[in-house]
Amino acid sequence: MDVRREKELRDAEAAAEKNILLTSVEKFLNWGRVHSFWPCSFGLACCAIEMASSGDPRYDLSRFGYEVFQASPRQADLMIVAGTLTRKMAPIARRIYDQMPEPKWVIAMGNCACSGGPFADSYAVVPGADSIVPIDVYIPGCPPRPESLMFGMLHLKQKIQNPAKARLIKHVK
């Protein structure tokens, strides 16, 4: 399936759940989800080092409960595409995404993952991970600071708690 279409469908699905009877159950589950994103330890390049730095004593991602990096994608909720996604790596990234259980989210960390970044015109690099996996939050930067990553994760938290908001921003623009 086309990844853009996939992302739109996922966003619409998240927004539509507001109308259903189970809304308060969903809200409760979402409360749990937004307070414990467990990222898949999936680092590609420079940004992976900043991702690791965000767990160190100074920045301490764990204050939000987001620090439990899981080695197996089966136990992860969040994939942080941190670094340059090359053409050789792209199928593997997609497979890791497929292996993760629903509900799952993707953050593109760094310009390489957002849209190719410095290597956008290289023959070997996928210009933007959103042609491989549907991305929820883009964090520009080269590499983004650990605080930027935290801001991105808090941004994702807002999106999950209020899925309509993310769509709204797009339509207003």
């Binding site: 991305i135 939050v137 883009y138 964090i139 520009p140 605080e147 930027s148 941004h155 921003i169 797009k170």
Partner: peptide, 12 residues
């Protein structure tokens, strides 16, 4: 300014 995260690629 480091809080640049966005929801859509167009906003980049």
């Amino acid at each position: 300014e480091f809080e640049n995260a966005v929801y859509h690629r167009e906003e980049l």
